[in-house]
């Protein structure tokens, strides 16, 4: 084996160690036990909406997306719904979509909820909790702000007021 090819192999092995080791250490440092964080890619989903149509993440490609996880029984979720509806109307023409994902309740419960509060933006059913698991949602409500490129820009846990929601969306549109 010539000297130069020996050196090449040496460098290749070092590169392999750096890549594998870097991945391992990197995921230990950054990987907060699988939780979702700002900057991560928004996990895909395909869920049935109360409108009877199947909604997928890909359908909202190129739009800034606000995903609100809620339960009909959860008081702060109910309280922030009007704010979400008014923001959905306000930003509709500027490429912002608001969707709600219900955490595991049945169709009738969610339909009554939507009708009762007069919600117009798409509400999706997640009876198997697929999206809940994919997004690692624990407390309700959880609101996730997704940039048009599909990356998460912010995650908000708990009730949102109109001002915070408005400034978050404004930021999302600016990006």
């Amino acid at each position: 084996m010539s000297k130069s090819s020996r050196r090449t192999i040496q460098i290749l092995i070092l590169i392999a160690i750096v890549i594998l080791g870097g991945y391992a250490i990197g995921s230990a440092v950054l990987g907060s036990d699988g939780k979702l964080e700002a900057g991560d890619k928004s996990p895909s989903f395909a869920l049935l909406g109360t409108d009877g149509a199947v909604h997928k993440l890909e359908d909202y490609k190129g739009k800034a997306l606000v995903i609100n996880f809620f339960g009909t029984w959860c008081e702060p979720c109910v309280k922030e719904m009007p704010a979400l509806q008014s923001e959905a109307d306000k930003w509709k023409d500027q490429g912002v979509a608001v969707i709600g994902i219900n955490a595991g309740e049945d169709q009738m419960t969610v339909e009554n909820f939507v009708d009762g509060l007069g919600i117009k933006f798409p509400i999706l059913l997640d009876e198997d909790k697929d999206a809940i698991n994919a997004y690692h949602v624990v407390p309700l409500p959880t609101t996730i702000f997704v940039k048009p490129d599909g990356r998460i820009s912010a995650i908000h846990l708990g009730q949102l007021d109109l001002q915070t929601l408005d400034s978050q969306i404004a930021q999302l549109v600016k990006q």
């Binding site: 092995i13 160690i17 594998l20 080791g21 391992a24 250490i25 230990a28 440092v29 036990d33």
Partner: peptide, 22 residues
């Protein structure tokens, strides 16, 4: 066992194994 320093030690042992052997 998920801490960065423990993983770093394992990676270094791995590097040592490969390089020592070769």
């Amino acid at each position: 066992y998920e801490s960065w320093w423990f993983i770093t030690l394992l990676v270094m042992i791995g590097a040592s194994l490969v390089i020592c052997s070769l």
